[in-house]
Simulated assay, not measured.
Amino acid sequence: MTLVRCSHEHGITTLTLDSPHNRNALSSRLVAELQERLAEAAEDARTRAVLLTHIGNTFCSGADLRETGTDGPQSLVRLMRAVVELSKPVVARVDGHARAGGLGLLGSCDISVAGEGATFAFTEARLGLAPAVISLPLLPRLDARAATRYYLTGERFGAAEAVRIGLVTAGEQELDAILDGLRRGSPQGLAESKALTTAGVRRAFDRDADALAGLSARLFASAEAREGMTAFLERREPVWAR
Rank of each mutant, 00 (worst) to 15 (best):
E155S: 15
L167R: 04
L190W: 05
E85K: 14
T197V: 15
D110Q: 06
A118Q: 02
R37L: 01
F220E: 14
C6G: 03
R203A: 14
L51Q: 08
R145Q: 13
V91T: 07
H8D: 08
A42E: 15
L167G: 03
P89F: 11
R37P: 03
I134N: 02
H54C: 06
I165Y: 00
V90A: 11
S186K: 12
A98F: 08
L52F: 10
G128F: 01
L103W: 07
H21N: 13
A132T: 08
H97K: 07
L26G: 04
R48S: 11
V91E: 02
A130P: 11
L142G: 09
R99D: 05
E224H: 05
T123G: 13
L52A: 10
R29K: 10
L38S: 05
G200H: 09
R48Y: 01
E155G: 14
S75A: 15
S186C: 09
L79G: 03
G185S: 13
A39F: 01
E36Y: 05
V31K: 11
G185L: 15
P131Y: 01
H97F: 04
R156F: 06
P20Y: 09
E67T: 12
V94R: 00
L139Y: 07
V113H: 00
E33N: 08
L233F: 00
R93P: 09
A98V: 14
A39S: 14
E85N: 12
A213P: 09
R183F: 05
R164V: 04
G228S: 00
Q173P: 02
V83R: 01
T58I: 08
A199E: 15
G56I: 00
L15I: 00
G166N: 04
R203V: 12
H54M: 03
D64T: 05
K194N: 15
I12M: 08
A191S: 15
A231I: 01
Y151H: 13
T230R: 15
L103C: 05
K88E: 06
L15M: 05
A209Y: 08
R156I: 14
I178D: 11
A159S: 10
S216L: 04
G107V: 07
D206L: 00
A241E: 09
A42Q: 12
D18E: 08
L139G: 01
I178Q: 07
E155K: 13
L65A: 15
C109V: 06
T230W: 09
A159Q: 05
A225S: 11
G56S: 02
G166Y: 01
D18K: 03
C6Y: 11
R236I: 07
V31H: 08
A191Y: 02
E227S: 04
A241H: 03
F157W: 03
G214N: 12
A146D: 01
G128E: 00
T16N: 10
T169I: 06
R46A: 14
A160H: 07
D95R: 13
L233W: 01
R99L: 08
S135A: 14
G181H: 09
T197Y: 12
S7L: 06
K88D: 12
E124R: 04
G101I: 10
R203H: 13
G171K: 00
L190P: 03
L17V: 00
L182S: 08
R202P: 05
I165H: 00
S27T: 11
D18C: 09
L219E: 08
A132V: 02
